[in-house]
């Protein structure tokens, strides 16, 4: 059971990274970016393909180099998709009824996952063993049967660094302040001279980059990635974002970890048959008590 808890925390870290993208976009645009799971999946593919290119180009099989190359390339690839999607599909629809961006998101998500299928084939893309073996076999024993692999520590560490970085960024940079202002009141922020379009594009860039890192982690952690694998993690990450209170950045982190832990405990204590159900049941129970999520603001009804 404790081992399952470890798995849960690690998966939770990845959910949290994806959830940040959902929650940032929601906070600023008030829309659910359903294609975010696909952005995450593209990140996984791009990361693995980049390590493949590095290996093929005769670069030394030096682990940090491979990982850094994969992460960087994944971030660039996913951010490019995120920003393009925003520019081509979401921006023309700003201000139209909520359901339109939703359908566009679903369409883009079809498009993206099938593009990957057409280009990369209907087979799982395996993460190269050079980039993975040492990380998985090096283990730290925590007593009993419980152990943590170097990969798990790396995932948790990277996630922590990225979350801390994002928090600092939002709190103390000019662009971060612009983002907060836009989330609070887009029209007012625009009148105050905040370049709204650029802020929104930046939000998509950053959210996609975070998801890309999670995607590369996912590919390494599960040893491979497939074009359909954006959906379920994406859905769960969205659940995590709602759980924490959508639109709320610390909430997404809390929600992600909570979801991972609940899943781990559920698998460890009850059964793994319902692994994918625990997330949604938790959400239902939490929303019954706190209809706006754990850290969501209590907004007074505007009449």
């Amino acid at each position: 059971m404790w081992q399952q808890l470890v798995y849960g925390v690690v998966e939770g870290a990845m959910y949290a990274l994806i959830a940040l993208g959902y929650t940032m976009v929601y906070g600023i645009l008030g829309m659910i970016n359903f294609a975010h799971g696909e952005i995450f999946m593209v990140g996984g593919y791009a990361g693995v393909l980049a390590t493949g290119l590095l290996l093929a180009s005769g670069a030394p099989p030096f682990l940090p180099l491979l990982l850094a190359g994969g992460v960087l390339f994944a971030m660039v690839a996913s951010s490019a998709w995120g920003a393009t999607m925003e520019r081509v599909a979401y921006r023309p629809l700003r201000g139209s009824p909520v359901l339109c961006p939703l359908i566009v998101a679903i369409g883009s998500s079809f498009f993206l996952s099938n593009l990957v299928m057409v280009c990369q084939g209907n087979v799982r893309l395996r993460a190269p063993s050079v980039a993975r073996d040492w990380l998985v076999t090096t283990r730290l024993h925590l007593g009993g049967d419980v152990h943590v692999s170097a990969l798990e520590i790396a995932i948790l560490g990277a996630a922590a660094v990225m979350m801390a970085g994002l928090t600092l960024f939002i709190r103390s940079t000019r662009l971060g302040r612009a983002m907060r202002a836009t989330a609070q009141d887009r029209t007012m922020a625009g009148l105050m001279g905040v370049p709204i379009d650029r802020v929104i594009a930046a939000t998509f860039l950053i959210g996609s980059a975070l998801a890309a890192v999670a995607g590369f982690m996912w590919a390494l952690y599960n040893s491979a990635i497939l074009y359909t694998e954006g959906y379920l993690p994406g859905m769960k990450a969205f659940t995590a974002a709602v759980l924490g209170g959508i639109g709320n950045v610390p909430g997404a982190m809390v929600g992600g970890f909570l979801l991972g832990i609940v899943e781990g405990l559920g698998v460890g204590l009850v059964s793994s048959d319902y692994k994918h159900v625990y997330a949604f049941v938790t959400l239902l129970l939490v929303l019954l008590v706190l209809p706006r999520g754990i850290l969501g603001e209590r907004v007074a009804e505007k009449v």
């Binding site: 659910i32 909520v98 048959d273 949604f280 959400l283 239902l284 929303l287 209809p291």
Partner: peptide
């Protein structure tokens, strides 16, 4: 019934969860 308190996107995600629960129930 539980959805009565929820609005907009929260309702969407809860019904999504309901759909997933039914789906995995049928499979399991």
């Amino acid at each position: 019934l539980p959805s009565l308190r929820l609005r907009g996107d929260y309702l969407a995600i809860v019904t999504l969860g309901f759909g997933e629960v039914v789906y995995y129930f049928l499979r399991t």
